[in-house]
């Protein structure tokens, strides 16, 4: 499943980053968005985009189109 499709409040694990634009991908890596990392989708912005996620103990926001390439699995 894609990170952009995850419902708020769900805890997931990143499986693969996918093929982003190189600058975007490097930015994600630098911010610690890496495969194997657990992520909680906290909320969606009032207008429906972007997303807020919690990762490595801090909070990060990214647009749905930026999250669409990231594959995740739901953690029970």
């Amino acid at each position: 499943m894609r990170l952009s499709e995850v419902n708020p409040g769900t805890r997931v694990r990143i499986l693969k980053l996918g093929r982003q634009d190189p600058a975007l991908k490097k930015r994600l890596l630098d911010m610690g968005v890496l495969s194997g990392e657990p992520v909680t989708v906290e909320r969606v912005a009032p207008l429906g985009d972007p997303l807020e996620i919690r990762i490595r103990g801090y909070r990060l926001s990214l647009r749905k189109e930026e999250a669409a390439e990231i594959t995740v699995e739901v953690l029970s």
């Binding site: 600058a23 975007l24 911010m31 990214l62 930026e66």
Partner: peptide, 9 residues
């Protein structure tokens, strides 16, 4: 020029 929104809260 690319622009993205990966931003810390």
């Amino acid at each position: 020029e690319s622009s993205f929104f990966v931003m810390e809260l």
